[in-house]
Design a protein around this nucleic acid. Structure first.
Lengths: 221, 221
DNA sequence: TCTACGGGTGGCACTGAGTGCCTTGATCGC
DNA sequence: GCGATCAAGGCACTCAGTGCCACCCGTAGA
């Protein structure tokens, strides 16, 4: 039933657009009663994003099991779940993206979904940063940065029509955030931290982000 | 008329809640025709946030005139405009905040407003970072971080009931972002960059953000 | 076989947001 | 005084979303 409604709805949305399609049209195509639609989807917008509830649950579960790792790396991996969900069905994702871009109601709905992901990530970070100075603040800023980076990569891919490798796009974007906020562990594995030290000499006034890049490249070198 | 409608609406929202108030109630209290309401406010939600359009315009204007400054510092200052708007009317802001928190429709509307601010900031950063590697990505991540930091400070103040100093709360929060992404210029003015250099020695594996904090404190020392 | 029950479904009527269209009335320039 | 213009009101309509009730059907029990 859920499936039938979602399919009928998407067909009609593609044929005549989201706003030009009424709920009555959808239930007529699906051959069910109007009342049943709202039993399965609380609003007309929900039928466009039938898969996010599950993804939110997965994300929460994944973060439950993220013990002592770098918190930033953990939330980056959690964010990747969303990318993987989109990548599992490129044509659908691209068409939905195009529709969402031009329908204000869907844009607003998507914002609230993204916000829920962000809150899940921030909640995890808040626990991990508990006690640290500005822990809550840092948690929210990092969560926002991770979401923004993820979405930048994902949307670049969606705009391109689903061509190319989403995974590397998103991973590269997330790398920028890990570089700025993570603890540096993770990516280059197998190197012992006590091997050596980094000596950085910088003129005062040097942009901090350039300093960060230097440190990062030194740590990876 | 706009003013009268907004005031009548807010009275009723406080008396019986947002969802329990119909547009007919509002126009009856204001003594105008129902059709006029939708001439001044495209939706019922808009009447709750009558001041954001102006603030968006101010923000755009301020960024127009932000020439060669540190781009991150410029967008932080732009974000402060929102805080100042809220601070100009603490009782109204606090009551609106409480109402927004418990009405899904208003939460969604607020998300879309916040998103518009974020896009203005990101647009400015995109221009400033044009040509740099990952300029677009960096622009969006920094904009998201600035907005998250600003909102963290602002909401802390709103949750406290409007007691204390918003400005220092928000500035402190924004400081964290400038520390991570800014070029370090700005805050400690009047110091010549060529005065001296910073030497930092760190063990490999040190969290990057701790390194950044060290650099920052050294630059301010 | 009849009956009582419960959950999924359909139908129906209602509220309320938002829109299009037309009328009215006031103000302003001629 | 007169026509143009524009803000405002009124009216009717669409459509999303909700509450309520009736129905159908499979099951369990007498």
């Amino acid at each position: 039933m859920r499936q039938a409604l979602a399919e009928a709805a998407f067909e009609l949305f593609l044929e005549r657009g989201f706003e030009q399609t009424t709920v009555d049209d959808i239930v007529a195509r699906a051959g069910v009663g109007r009342r049943s639609f709202f039993r399965y989807f609380p609003s007309k917008e929900d039928v466009v994003f039938p898969d996010h509830e599950g993804c939110l649950a997965e994300m929460t579960a994944l973060l439950e099991g993220a013990g002592g790792r770098d918190p930033v790396a953990a939330v980056c991996d959690a964010a990747r779940l969303v990318m993987l969900m989109y990548a599992a069905n490129p044509e659908f994702s691209v068409r939905r993206y195009r529709m969402t871009r031009e329908v204000p109601g869907l844009r607003c709905y998507e914002l609230s979904v993204v916000r829920r992901y962000e809150r899940v990530l921030a909640g995890h970070l808040r626990e991990r940063y508990a006690g640290a100075p500005d822990g809550d603040l840092r948690a929210e800023v990092v969560a926002a940065a991770v979401v923004a980076a993820h979405n930048n990569g994902l949307r670049t891919w969606l705009r391109s029509g689903g061509e190319g490798d989403v995974e590397s796009l998103v991973d590269h974007a997330l790398g920028l955030v890990r570089q700025a906020w993570g603890d540096g562990s993770g990516s280059p594995a197998g190197r012992r931290p006590e091997d050596d030290v980094v000596v950085l000499v910088a003129r005062k006034g040097t942009p901090v982000w350039r300093v960060v890049q230097s440190v990062e490249s030194a740590l990876e070198g």
